[in-house]
């Protein structure tokens, strides 16, 4: 009897690529460029959190809508995350008694 070591809340490369509507090689490339997060198990396979699908969608929008290259998309994603965090902190600070 063999047991599959599967993390049910994560997607493998094939499932993730299918859900994102991308070729698995492009997904692998996005991981190598450091713009989507993946964890690597002991056999070298990539696993993705479902939340990364939203990141892929954002990458596609930035690329199609603004013509950004992948290096600048990485930077833009970082900055957008930073803005979100700062805006949240600002909101908290403005709230009375906060």
């Amino acid at each position: 009897m063999t047991y599959a070591l599967v993390r049910p809340n994560e997607l493998d490369l094939g499932a993730f690529a299918a859900a994102a509507g991308l070729h698995p090689e492009l997904v692998r490339r996005l991981v190598a460029l450091g713009i989507i997060d993946a964890s690597c198990d002991c056999s070298g396979d990539l696993w993705f959190a479902p939340g990364q699908l939203a990141v892929v969608a954002r990458i596609q929008r930035l690329r199609a809508g603004l013509g950004l290259n992948y290096a600048s998309i990485g930077l833009v994603l970082d900055l957008l995350d930073r803005i979100t965090a700062l805006e949240a902190a600002l909101q908290r600070a403005r709230r009375p008694g906060g």
């Binding site: 991981v31 460029l33 450091g34």
Partner: peptide, 13 residues
């Protein structure tokens, strides 16, 4: 690939 990934992230930050 790992090296490129690490570099891209570090360079950005």
């Amino acid at each position: 690939d790992d090296i490129q990934r690490a570099y891209r992230r570090l360079a950005r930050t």
